[in-house]
Design a protein around this nucleic acid. Structure first.
Lengths: 223, 223
DNA sequence: ATGAATTAAAAAATTAACAATATTACGCTT
DNA sequence: AAGCGTAATATTGTTAATTTTTTAATTCAT
């Protein structure tokens, strides 16, 4: 079952979306920073229409604020807002996992292991944080997808892109990755055992633990 | 504190969004129906650019599917998908309500009562289903907002617009409104009592009961 | 006939020019 | 000098025309 990579013809809008999203998530564009349509259009060698469409799309993702006639700014998240996002993730993801566990098949475990190995090698090889982050959500989604809840998964993915800036920050500045990897392993083994209460509790601690680390980081930076 | 209505300068894009959203939610545009950019542009007397921007916005709302180079279609929801949406609502809204109840102030109860009265008169005066639906979410949000979870509330609102087509269907074709109103009254009084477990349980039954009614309706229509 | 290749038509994506709106800077009045 | 109004500028919103892509219809070979 070799997945042939489809020839993807990306539209300009999609290219702009990806470029801007990455810049916002990486911190290159800071919260509150205005996003001038013409400047972006010039930088990326496109006209302003695809830029505008990209901006409304990013607004929907919660990464950008787009006010009529005033223009777009990158969204700045307060500690309270980040807290809210993580707690909502904990609620929904625990529910997803509980629904998924009874349906998990050996193939799913294999896939999860596979992603975990990629994650570990990505870390060792000093890969970019961006790809670590992507693999991380891939691991989680791979467990959740057995829940057969496509829309819920979409919501979770949306929350994740919003959290991503802070997750990256934490991974970069603290020793977050080894902890996460240990927890991933335990989570996977609890899933294999079909131990729903233990698995969901670990997952919640996994998510809320990251939140605590991020909070500590932010408070420290403010000093 | 007379709220002066702000002079709103609606952009064409916003007008198109509202027009299309209403047509989809009312059922005038059916699921799966293609949305031709030029046709819409002509009908609404705008150029195609605002139409395109409206379509990407509606895609983000989950009302429209927008495939590159192929165009947009209204989203068709299966029974399974509607079930998922309602169950996710039940999960999140119960959490919101539980967090809100300890913070509810007399002013909130007053506002809620107010909305309830409007709801009842809207029903008696045979107002449009659209306005009933809007007041309905207003009532719920008025209880939830004390939870201080703006982003979560956004997610819930998003889920609600997706459910709206089916809620309207149910209200139109069954005697759903009196039941909903009775449940609203009980819910409000449980909130006043500060009885969190009873309130959240009632809320979940309120939401999942509507789901059951809708399912019955859909199955009946298929016969 | 069946199926691949080519062409014609339709629709979407993009651009560049134009109109409307908001922000800023400046001068005026008090 | 502070506050208000007006003009200049920058930025956004919109349109109409152009380019690109997809879909279908047609042709040609097997």
């Amino acid at each position: 079952m070799t997945n042939i990579a489809p020839i993807i013809h990306k539209t300009r809008t999609q290219l702009v979306v990806e470029a801007l999203r990455e810049r916002i998530l990486s911190g290159e564009i800071k919260g509150g920073e205005p996003l001038r349509q013409s400047a972006i259009a010039e930088q990326l060698n496109v006209s302003r229409i695809p830029v505008r469409e990209a901006l409304v799309q990013l607004e929907a993702e919660g990464l950008v604020n787009f006010e009529p006639h005033k223009g777009a700014t990158a969204i700045a998240l307060s500690v309270e807002q980040v807290t809210e996002l993580f707690q909502l993730r904990a609620l929904i993801e625990a529910d997803l996992l509980a629904r998924a566990i009874p349906n998990l098949k050996p193939a799913d475990f294999e896939e999860a292991e596979n992603v975990l190995e990629q994650l570990e090698s990505a870390f060792k090889q000093q890969h970019s944080i961006a790809s670590w982050s992507e693999l991380n959500t891939q691991f989680h989604n791979c467990l959740y997808k057995a829940a057969n809840r496509p829309h819920t998964l979409d919501v979770v993915d949306g929350l994740n892109t919003n959290c991503d800036r802070y997750i990256r920050l934490q991974l970069l500045l603290t020793g977050g990755i080894p902890i996460a990897e240990r927890e991933h392993r335990s989570l996977l083994s609890l899933c294999k055992q079909g131990n729903i209460p233990a698995a969901t509790e670990l997952l919640q601690n996994h998510i809320l633990g990251a939140l605590t680390a991020i909070k500590a980081l932010v408070i420290q930076q403010l000093k």
